[in-house]
Design a protein around this nucleic acid. Structure first.
Lengths: 190, 190
DNA sequence: TTCCTGATTGACCAGTTAATCAATCACTGA
DNA sequence: TCAGTGATTGATTAACTGGTCAATCAGGAA
């Protein structure tokens, strides 16, 4: 891995950690750079400005999630199993942990003033939605859209609740909660 | 209404608007005060510091919501009707609008570093939960807790999605979505 | 009128921060 | 060996912000 790629990754991870620890986007480039063990000037050298560093951090988090989803789907067979895999992947420790979710929450705030941030979150939501619909349709027909809307919304809501109170929820209980909701939705239309 | 009460309210509303417009807690006291038509020194005179102004703004938003819930419940008769009233109140225009939700999202961020902010949001979540359980129990028995968890999570998730894309959702469609989820949950246990 | 109290502000300060830049440093290919 | 290139930084700056404070203003009571 070239030095540039390594430094960029170190800075991006440091940014996520700093946002998570501070619980805010109001972190200084100096703090991020110090956490990564370099000077703030290097961060500007690689990313140009603070916002582009943040956007790279967002892409990183969403990429980790996308990888988790792909991995989980690869071993699932059948529509029902794929739906369960999708939900399970959403609450994997690599995503569903303090720092990642604290950062994720702040990215929603970033999206209020950055179109690129908005676009990235929008892509994430659309992909989750279309993944859900793809496997719901054979099971629930025309209800698939609405059910996907509800399951997707519930997942995001649980992320939010975890952000407020990390002790009150863990990956397994969250997964179980959403799986139950899924079962009830499917039951209701069959 | 005394001058003090009026000024405090004007400043609190200005703070919510400024947070909403800016899409961030990173707003200056001067901007807030200017929006309220007074000097920044007056904001410090009444609230002491910036954080206490923010906390007052949070209490204001949550109070508006609580009032909406009380009003809606007053005209509801029977458990099912009360549940529908509760859900309906969550998507009333006074809450479910751009500025209120943008501010509400930022309050979740504030809660990451302020225990008092965390406590306020916690109270809101508990109250919604216990309201839901109260009327779910007669209909669903021991399933009431889990169902309330899911309905509450879904409501928060829809708030979040509205924060990202206000055009993609309105109060009526959100209400309908949650009501359907409620029906399906109740169906599944009866 | 005179006094008092709370409302209100302009001016000010001390501290912070994003961004810049000239200057080194480390390494590589010729 | 040496020129060239990207990595890296310390120092600096211009702008901004939370918070303070002395001073003024307005209105009511005595």
């Amino acid at each position: 891995m070239s030095i540039e790629v390594r430094r960029r990754k170190e800075l991006v991870i440091a940014a996520i950690e700093e946002i998570g620890v501070q619980g805010s986007l109001d972190v200084t480039v100096s703090k991020i750079a110090k956490r990564a063990g370099v000077s703030s000037a290097l961060a500007f050298h690689y990313f140009g400005d603070k916002d582009r560093l943040f956007l790279s951090a967002m892409r990183f988090v969403l990429t980790v999630y996308a990888t988790e989803v792909r991995k989980s789907l690869a071993t699932a067979d059948g529509h029902h199993a794929r739906l369960r895999a999708l939900i399970h992947a959403s609450f994997t420790p690599s995503n569903f942990c303090n720092t990642a979710i604290a950062a994720w929450l702040n990215f929603y705030v970033l999206a209020q003033r950055s179109d690129e941030a908005k676009r990235l979150l929008w892509v994430y939501q659309r992909r989750l939605h279309s993944n859900l619909v793809h496997d719901l349709k054979p099971l629930t027909g025309t209800n698939a859209q609405a059910i996907a809307e509800r399951i997707g919304g519930l997942i995001d809501g649980l992320y939010l609740r975890f952000a407020l109170n990390p002790a009150g929820l863990n990956g397994e209980s969250a997964t179980a909660l959403v799986l139950d909701a899924l079962d009830h939705e499917i039951e209701a239309v069959t």
